[in-house]
Write a protein that binds this DNA or RNA. Sequence first.
DNA 1: CTGAAAGCGCTAACAA
DNA 2: TTGTTAGCGCTTTCAG
Lengths: 345, 345
Amino acid sequence: MADSDVQPLTDKPDRVRTITDLAKIAGVSPGTVSRALSGNSLVNTKTRKKIESIAREHGFRPNQMASKLRRQKTGVIGVAIPLGHDVRQQISDTFFMTLLGHLADELTERGFDIMLRRVIPAQDEDWLDRFIGSGLIDGVIVIGQSDQFERIEDAADGYLPMVVWGNHQEGQRHCVVGTDNRLGGKLAAEKLITAGARNLAFMGDTQALEFAARFNGAKEVSEKMDVPIRALATHLSPDRTADEIAQHLREIDGQVDGIFAATDTIAVTCLKELRDRGIAVPTQLKIVGFDDLPIAGQTVPPLTTVRQDITAGAKCLADLLLRRLNGEDTESLVMPPHVIARGSA
Amino acid sequence: MADSDVQPLTDKPDRVRTITDLAKIAGVSPGTVSRALSGNSLVNTKTRKKIESIAREHGFRPNQMASKLRRQKTGVIGVAIPLGHDVRQQISDTFFMTLLGHLADELTERGFDIMLRRVIPAQDEDWLDRFIGSGLIDGVIVIGQSDQFERIEDAADGYLPMVVWGNHQEGQRHCVVGTDNRLGGKLAAEKLITAGARNLAFMGDTQALEFAARFNGAKEVSEKMDVPIRALATHLSPDRTADEIAQHLREIDGQVDGIFAATDTIAVTCLKELRDRGIAVPTQLKIVGFDDLPIAGQTVPPLTTVRQDITAGAKCLADLLLRRLNGEDTESLVMPPHVIARGSA
DNA sequence: CTGAAAGCGCTAACAA
DNA sequence: TTGTTAGCGCTTTCAG
């Protein structure tokens, strides 16, 4: 007689939360409810209809956590964005966010949910294994290798369903999708030199693998053509980057006549800075970017850049991951970059 | 003698997957392992050290799904992006993705994971209740009301831990964070008129609540100032939008001298189109955007726009959600917009 | 301080 | 076709 007659006001009395509640109301066993609601198994049509209608009536939603635990399948893909070489680089980086957007479209399309995790490797050595071993996800997509190449390699040895967006290196063990950055760098340098530049600078953070490859490609061409090229370090942190770039441009004033920017974002900032300082592009200084973000077509002059196909990249990441989820040991995929010639070089 | 002596080659013999495996090795009970690893409970220091070292040695990671199920807390925040009024609008929309990025930063900072879900309400009536009732998340942030205002209202009645990015309406029941779109619209129209425009057009999809409010604000000012304003519909789908805008600009040629673009993205496209057609901004035609995306400062002429503080917005969303997670029934938060005067008006 | 035991809510054999 | 039962791997009383 203690509290059985006290109707708690906060709870609706007939709230059906579990499959067992529902089973009681329907006068069947929990197993039958489970089968009826999951659709595939063999259940009498009449029983199923009844159960479905009761479920609808009471707004019943099965607890996915329990289901996932039991079935040992989550239907969730983890997406990790390691912020390694520059802790201040935010997840809000344009290229990565755009890729993430397309990835979300692709994975949703195929019925997967996405668990997004921003990771700062410096603060958490074990980030990848922890994510993989968490039991929360069926597979993982890593967006950007940052400075975590070795850690990713290690994880790949014992874990198949992982695909990485990034740079490809001869003989690497993890499955990567990305643009041929080295080739992209070559194309950029060629474009600048063809356009008449005779003293080049690369602007970007060469600690990041992909950027380093772009620089190396450009360097190869420069050396062959006997044109000097220097590297100017920038950081991706959006608040400091503009100042750094301005600083660099001041230092190289008059010496350099061709800039290869590691990303369109950097290129656009250069463009603006040069305009402010009254330096004409492309007559006095030529610029080539990388990525071909939507903004590239909108600047003045429009940015000549090396295109990465983000949409195709996202599709490939999803495709390969799904195949790996099925046990296939897929090859990496390196996509060819293309120069988009606009007005800046 | 059946299979106990058969060592399966696919499994490492000493793989420790469960807390029970670990307990056996350590010679303690599973309960003790759980306590030792979760840190908070009272366990003999020596026992704890031993368990921790065995765990490390075998690379043990506790299964989070099981833990979450048992504790009835997930540590996961759902982020839903409804794509209602325009199915073709991709999740890759710049403003939303930027907001998502900052949100990810905020929530990660506070120890939450993020479950991202792109939703097409037209295909799934029940999207919000399903997400909420899934047992997968502790709370939900909806980015953009799209055309789902009523559904969100309904869900809010029975579910506290939800915060929405969007427009605020007098007397609404769900907790929203957003910019005062109506005021923003007023400011934009005032700016255009002050700059000398005498015939305005609003460019954007007025089916979306937020955009409608921006338009209405602008209309209020126009009417008071006796300046005509017309609405030109666009869609957010990135591939079609440019053509639509070009079409509109052709139609209004010579009649309109001030454009209020619903977003910076639209404004930038206008700018480019006008430049291609040799129409001078701001002399012949003035333009004001909305959002103040990074790109706004980089165009030629730099875009005059109405600023929404995305970073602050993300912080607020996270703050309010956390307070709601603690049972507090928080108020909505409407942030004031600011005109950023640059060159286009 | 530690062990035993009872579930979190669901699914999948195995029986009936 | 349906009910029963035994867990998925973890946490948390309750005893000791």
